Amino acid sequence: MPLTVEKIIGVMDPNGYSFRVAFEKLIEFLDPQIKVGDTTFRVRTRRIISRPYNVLGAQTSCAAVINRGLHWNPHHNYFFQMVAHQTYLLNDMLSFTSIKKNPSYGQMYELGLHIPRTWALPPRDYGSILKEPNVDPDLIFPEHESFDLSEIGEKVGYPAFLKPQDGGGWEGVVKVNDAEELHAAYERSGERPMNLQEAIDYREFVRTVGIGPQMLPMHYNATAKYSHDRYLRS
């Protein structure tokens, strides 16, 4: 007896005008129907929205989730880590551990990739932690070593970029051209651990778009306002 089954692709994209709407319209236009034996699978899309959920026994009805922003939203992130075994995650959350820069740099360096000279710096300000009445600073910082920031700047070289050890989107990134600018930028960096990284005079900015084992290197225009204009296929 013929059977029709609906499969839902969840779409998580904070940039609604760059990808989400286009993907939804494409699926609506194509109306894909995949036949396997006596079963016909019809594909539909559903936007991932923020809502409360029961942690015990959490489930998703999505057969697959296309993620273009989950890593920025901890509420969604934790949910899909819980249900990762129930669905296919395209851009799964575990891949976004690479947004923590230094483990990625270290692993790539061990694999023989060329990484710009990079020094990790502790936070300039521990203010909010030290002000906690129930926290003993000696338990958190049993040893605190002074360091010469100018010396590290000379080892990295100028120009360089002072940037947070995690995150993306150029948030908190400052270009420094000498020791004076480095000290000023570090003084303003607040409570985030920072990296000082050598600036590279590059000819091509390339990013790789991947789904599973399929990889497509693409030229990347970092100055474009919208993300769909940044990836240039040539």
Rank of each mutant, 00 (worst) to 15 (best):
L139Y: 11
N54V: 10
P193T: 12
P137I: 08
G10I: 09
I99P: 01
R233D: 13
H76D: 11
I27L: 12
S189V: 02
S98A: 15
S18T: 06
Y88A: 05
V174I: 15
F96T: 04
T4D: 14
I115M: 07
D201R: 14
R46G: 13
H114S: 12
G112L: 08
M218Q: 09
H144K: 12
L216F: 13
D148P: 03
I152P: 03
I27A: 07
P122L: 06
G153D: 09
K7T: 01
P2R: 12
G172L: 03
G190I: 02
V65L: 13
D138Y: 08
F79E: 02
P164F: 03
I34D: 08
R207P: 00
R68F: 15
S227C: 09
G112D: 07
L3C: 10
T87R: 02
P122K: 03
E171F: 02
D31W: 02
R124P: 02
E181Q: 15
T39H: 03
K175P: 10
T118Y: 00
S61A: 01
L94T: 10
R230A: 13
F161Q: 03
I140G: 09
K25P: 00
R124G: 05
P14M: 11
N54H: 10
A199Q: 05
L232W: 06
Q197H: 04
R20C: 06
L130I: 05
S18W: 04
A64W: 12
K100Y: 15
I49V: 15
A64D: 09
I8E: 07
G37L: 08
D138C: 11
E180N: 11
E143F: 14
Y105I: 11
D136E: 13
A22M: 13
G106M: 07
H75A: 12
H75R: 06
P217F: 00
L121T: 04
L30I: 15
N91S: 11
N221Y: 06
N54D: 14
P14Y: 13
H75C: 02
D31V: 06
G153N: 08
V55D: 07
I9N: 01
P164Q: 07
C62V: 06
G190D: 08
G169H: 10
M215K: 15
A222G: 05
G106D: 07
D92T: 02
F161N: 01
T39W: 00
D31T: 11
L216K: 12
N221Q: 13
G57P: 03
S146W: 12
I27M: 10
V55G: 01
E204T: 00
E154C: 04
F79G: 04
T118F: 00
E143I: 15
E181M: 12
D92E: 11
R20A: 12
I200H: 00
I99L: 14
L3P: 00
D13H: 12
G112C: 05
D125A: 09
K100V: 13
V156K: 05
Y158N: 06
N195V: 08
V206K: 10
Q33H: 11
F41E: 01
Q59A: 05
L182A: 03
I27K: 05
M194T: 03
D136M: 10
P193E: 07
P193I: 10
G112N: 07
L89N: 04
P133Q: 07
R117M: 03
W72L: 14
E154S: 08
E24H: 15
I99W: 04
A185K: 05
G168H: 08
